[in-house]
Simulated assay, not measured.
Amino acid sequence: MHWEQYWDVTPTLSSFGDSSDALGYPEKLLNFWENAVKSYGSDTHYLDLGTGKGALAVWIQVLLVRSMLGGSVKACDLANIDETKISSGVDELDEAIKHVEFKFNTPLERLPYPNNQFDVLASQFGFEYSDWDKSLPEALRVLKDNGELILMLHHPDSAITKDCIGGIRVLNWFFNENILNDVTTLIDLKLRNENIPFARLNEEIIHKLQTFKVLDSAEQVWFLDVMTKLSKLIININHESTKALKNLEEFIGKQITRLEDQVSVAFSKEEVTNRIKKSQVTIKSLKIEDFFVDGELFCWKVLLKK
């Protein structure tokens, strides 16, 4: 599964590695969850659905301890994540990790928890990947009466989705233009000391790279990231270079799959509403709102009350 590979190589606890926070979350998001936890008060029991490496669950646990609220935090995810690799290098977060009960290899469609166990279910970019017809009834099964389900979902017009679309375009271009195949040949020429063909092909590759038209700053980040990795390979060609290039090719392929996954679950408000209706769950209320971070559309904020 590409998500397992992604979490295995991602150092932060969330997928927002550009953030300066150790959790990888932007400040506005941290504040949202802090206000939510404080509003629910003491002795509240939480379940984080689609937790990944546990950023949201860990943050909720930190907030419970800081405010001396008691309660508990559990978290689950379909991916087979190595729990021993969940760490942050920050004492407060690492202490919180010890107190979150994780369950991996756990589909949201079959939750291993008894009925009416949790006061609050939360999910930060995880629930939308599930089969709502099965996962939503399961979520409400383990949620207590009058409990709440908070879903932060990918939005089709968000900065995150736009970045994913740009990443897909950039990464696919390297495959479509056979850049990686050309670099494979380049490595072979260098190792065989065929300097004239090497120089000629190197010039051709450079010319190809110069033809790519970056549409925005997000695409430029994706393009420069691949270029940096390729440049290091070409500058320091050795007998391990072919293997390294193969690993890079596999990594880029998995990145494309991950980005396509994210775009595919960036549902419109109408699609979110229809999925909830189609699951035939009984709820007391439903709110769907835009959520902004630093003036940019970030995601949907969905609140269901059982």
Rank of each mutant, 00 (worst) to 15 (best):
E92P: 00
E92Q: 08
E92A: 09
D94P: 00
D94K: 14
D94V: 09
E95L: 05
E95W: 04
A96Q: 01
H99A: 09
V100H: 00
E101Y: 15
E101R: 10
F102N: 02
F102R: 07
F102P: 00
F102M: 03
F104K: 10
N105R: 15
E109C: 01
E109I: 03
R110G: 08
R110W: 08
R110V: 12
R110L: 11
L111Q: 06
L111F: 09
P112I: 15
P112D: 07
Y113R: 03
P114K: 07
P114T: 13
N115G: 01
N116P: 03
Q117H: 12
F118D: 00
D119F: 07
A122N: 03
A122W: 12
S123H: 06
Q124P: 11
F125W: 14
F125N: 01
F125Y: 12
G126K: 13
G126E: 09
G126R: 14
F127G: 04
F127M: 07
E128P: 02
Y129E: 02
Y129F: 10
D131R: 10
D131F: 15
W132L: 10
W132P: 00
D133Y: 07
K134T: 06
L136A: 06
L136Q: 09
L136K: 13
L136D: 02
P137R: 15
E138G: 04
A139T: 11
A139D: 00
A139N: 03
V142N: 01
K144Q: 08
K144T: 09
D145P: 14
N146C: 00
G147P: 07
G147M: 08
E148P: 07
L149N: 06
L149H: 14
L149T: 11
I150S: 02
I150Q: 04
L151W: 13
L151V: 15
L151K: 13
L151T: 13
L151H: 13
L153G: 01
H155C: 00
H155E: 00
P156C: 10
P156T: 07
P156F: 15
P156K: 15
D157Q: 11
S158F: 11
S158I: 13
A159Y: 10
I160K: 09
